[in-house]
Design a protein around this nucleic acid. Structure first.
Length: 796
DNA sequence: CAGTGAGCGAGCTTCCGCTTGACTT
């Protein structure tokens, strides 16, 4: 029998550790927390000094009973959860729930999963740090109070099922405020001057040189004056300066930086990155993927050193330990790195391989020498102007870590000029003017957040933890506070003026400005909820709220403060604001905007958040005539909706008159404009304007739909009315009990018997799960690999 | 993927951080 039971948090970790410890030790996993506040109700007895009411969640009952049984059999139980606030609490809950005894329970911690580290930990056990546990309890209870008191206020005041919390509400705030900054941004135009010259070197070889004016002109007049001067100028190299510079490698990955780089380099969502990383971790390829530390173990650094020396030579090695700067970091784990650096590649899916490759290269690069660069700047005199042109170039003298890894930035296009190489030039050399272009450019407003850049911001503010970044982003999207989408951008005209030979040409060009992909955009509900929360709960919504309470939790952990005391102080200030928010009666609903009166009927028109989201209302509920409601169209927003737009919305649905004694109506629904007749709907083709379409045209649409419906029906069976063979947009299919099944290619739909259909259905039901999943991953693979190739070549 | 376009009611919704599967798309 095992003398010792070791409990860790993760089963993958348990497996590895068991190998190091030998037969006397059994290692099991708690799968994270085993106990939490009651699921229903508040789960805290506030009257009784914030006494938490814990329970074991149903999905943890099995783990707990197994752990209990094994603990009973063991002589010594080793609690080896992570050395941070949550880990300490897990140990404490285990101690309590499993009914452990102080004399045969030991608390141990280790930061790296190596035989040495673990044997060392076993030699140096300690006791559970109750202060740290209390800090966790305070954190947990505060979050529950905030979430479970704020959310019901939103249900009452705005809309059911909404939620608010310390982390998610601030995340939404960041997105809402960014959106408003963008809407308020006014871009300024200026002229950017680029000049192309021919220069000859000593051998008489001709090179092209690209130079830029060291300032921009704010007006067209100034620009034209300059170009006129250029026309009659000679160009001489006035000065050349060369200055060396260094580039340093980025630290190894944490959860947040991995999510950012995987988004930029591999186009993964944060959830995808975490899923793939989890698989790599479980397969033993990488260390733990939820970490805030940039620390590498001596083993890892040594592994890097060996690999670099072997493949590139010793001059590429420069080992270093990075410092973790991020706010609130707890550093229970190492950075995310390959378990063994000598595995340059691994087996697995294409996505797994690509993420591994990224981690391997980043880790290796972090222990490599700086890149040495030389930046050359040549100043060009323009004889008839006081302005100077500047040509700059950068040469890599020693590539160092750049040989392996280059970090990406969100605004890559800004860096275009850097890697240009200047030909050999000398002071006093004359240059031959080829082309000077003045392009009207516009200042760029702030960018919307991507999932990854939001994670970066949250981490910067110390809000959320590695294990919650991805779930938080899902939550705010599930609540419909935020949507991920593309911004189409707008056409913009800009002026291009060229000086070639002795002619100045002037041209107006168009471009698409402000196009953005996969960005987080706040919804109307998100904005209304955000404004409401800021109004009534400014402290909770303060970007520094988390950082402030974290300090309190630190004090508790250090034994400087009583945890219930901290909670009590917080609650005494927080709870009255909840009461106040509930009691405040407003004339209008939260977020409601009164747009004005309808010019003909005089009825008031307003927009507000209704039971099912934003809704436009005409007329008031205490009026004799019932108010009418309308949904906003795609692209409209509550904040910017005008009275005119709202009036348009009420022009539909409109009646066109009767056909076959039934009314024909035109409306706009979730899927666009439709014709409604005899309780049937038909989509209105794009060529018709719903406000202009005539009865005759609508009848055509109805008849076309009837014909399609007639063709749709291929076969049905008297003995089984649920079974139908139908013709759909994508060819014939079988419809059975609300589900659809495709017909194998070798079968003729018209000849199918009921038994044939049942057989097809049975076959597809069996294959469904596996078959489909496989199919989606393979297509995803193809897509991502081609993209990767494109990016890689670009980099070289 | 396979066809949509509504809303009475009664009762429910909700937090953050630890961890994985077991479920469908």
């Amino acid at each position: 029998m095992h003398k010792n039971l070791v409990i860790v948090e993760s089963p993958a970790k348990a497996k590895t550790i068991e190998k190091f410890l030998g037969d006397d030790y059994k290692v099991l996993s708690s799968y994270g927390h085993i106990r939490d506040l009651k699921k229903k109700d508040l789960g805290i007895d506030i009257e009784n000094n914030f006494e938490p009411q814990y329970e074991i969640p149903s999905d943890k009952k099995k783990v707990v009973s197994e752990l209990k049984a094994e603990a009973k059999k063991a002589e010594t139980v080793w609690l080896a959860s992570d050395e941070d606030r949550e880990g300490e609490a897990i140990s404490w809950h285990l101690y309590d729930v499993l009914g452990l005894k102080p004399e045969n329970t030991k608390r141990i911690v280790f930061h790296e999963i190596t035989k040495n580290a673990i044997q060392n930990a076993i030699k140096n056990p300690r006791e559970i740090d109750i202060n740290l546990v209390n800090a966790q309890q305070a954190r947990r209870i505060l979050d529950r109070i905030v979430g479970f008191e704020l959310s019901p206020v939103l249900w009452r005041k705005i809309k059911p099922s909404l939620s608010a919390g310390r982390v998610q509400s601030v995340a939404v705030r960041l997105i809402v405020e960014r959106e408003r900054d963008i809407r308020a941004f006014k871009s300024k135009a200026s002229y950017r001057i680029i000049a192309l010259f021919n220069a000859k070197d000593k051998e008489g070889e001709t090179y092209e040189i690209r130079a830029e004016l060291n300032k921009r002109f704010n007006t067209k007049k100034e620009t034209l004056t300059f170009l006129d001067e250029c026309k009659i100028s000679t160009y001489t190299i006035e000065d050349i300066t060369t200055r060396p510079s260094k580039k340093h490698p980025a630290p190894p990955f944490t959860t947040s930086t991995l999510q950012q780089e995987a988004a930029r380099k591999l186009s993964f969502t944060v959830a995808q990155t975490m899923m793939i990383a989890q698989r790599l971790y479980e397969a033993g390829h990488i260390t733990y993927m939820r970490t805030d530390s940039v620390n590498l173990s001596a083993y890892a650094i040594n592994g890097c050193k060996e690999t670099i020396t072997k493949t590139m030579g010793e001059n590429y090695v420069k080992t270093r330990q990075f410092q973790t700067h991020s706010k609130g970091a707890q550093e229970a784990h190492e950075a995310i790195r390959p378990t063994h650096m000598n595995n340059e590649t691994i087996s697995g899916t294409a996505q797994e391989q690509r993420l591994y490759d990224l981690i391997w290269k980043r880790t290796l690069a972090s222990q490599m020498a700086e890149a040495l660069l030389e930046k050359t700047t040549a100043t060009i005199d323009v004889s008839e102007s006081k302005e100077k042109l500047v040509a700059s170039g950068e040469v890599i003298k020693f590539d160092g870590f750049l040989r392996v890894y280059r970090e990406s930035y969100d605004d890559d296009q800004e860096q275009e000029d850097d890697s240009r190489i200047l030909p050999p030039l000398s002071v006093g050399q004359n240059l031959e003017r080829k082309l000077i272009t003045a392009t009207e450019r516009f200042t760029q407003g702030p960018y919307r957040f991507t999932e990854a850049s939001l994670v970066r911001k949250l981490e910067e503010l110390g809000i959320g933890r590695p294990s919650t970044y991805a779930p938080t982003i899902s939550t705010i999207q599930n609540r419909k506070y935020v949507e991920k989408g593309d911004i189409e951008g707008e056409e913009r005209k800009y002026n291009v003026i060229e000086l070639k030979d002795d002619k100045i040409s002037d041209e107006i060009m168009t471009e698409i400005a402000g196009r953005e992909r996969a960005k987080l955009i706040p919804t109307d509900v998100g904005m209304v909820v955000n404004d409401f929360l800021i109004d009534f709960f400014p402290k909770i919504m303060d970007l520094n709220f988390t950082a402030t309470v974290e300090k309190e939790f630190d004090d508790i952990a250090e034994g400087k403060k009583e945890w219930t005391e901290t909670l009590s102080t917080f609650y005494d200030r927080f709870h009255p604001s909840v009461e106040e928010a509930l009691e405040t009666q407003t004339e209008h609903r939260v977020g409601e905007r009164i747009l004005g009166d309808h010019p003909k009927t005089g009825k008031p028109i307003s927009v507000k958040i209704g039971r099912y989201g934003p809704v436009v209302q005409m007329g008031s509920s205490d009026d004799e005539e019932k108010p009418r409601f309308a949904q906003m169209r795609k692209g409209m927003s509550m904040e910017t909706l005008t009275l005119e737009e709202a009036i348009e919305l009420f022009k539909l649905p409109r009646s066109l008159g009767d056909y076959e004694d039934k009314e024909v109506k035109i409306g706009v629904g979730r899927y666009g404009p439709y014709v409604h007749h005899n309780s049937k709907y038909a989509s209105l083709p794009k060529k018709y304007d719903p406000l202009e379409v005539t009865l005759e045209e609508a009848i055509e649409v109805i008849l076309a739909k009837r014909e399609a419906d007639a063709k749709k029906h291929i076969k049905s069976f008297d003995e089984e009315p649920d079974m139908q063979v139908l013709n759909g947009r994508y060819g014939p299919y079988i419809a059975y009990k609300k589900k659809n099944y495709r017909i194998p290619k070798d079968k003729t739909p018209e000849d199918l018997s009921l038994d044939d259909c049942l057989a097809i259905i049975k076959d597809q039901q069996e294959n469904r799960g596996k078959g489909r999943r496989k199919k989606t991953t393979t297509t995803a693979k193809k897509k991502t690999t081609t993209k990767k190739k494109a990016k890689d070549t670009k980099k070289k």
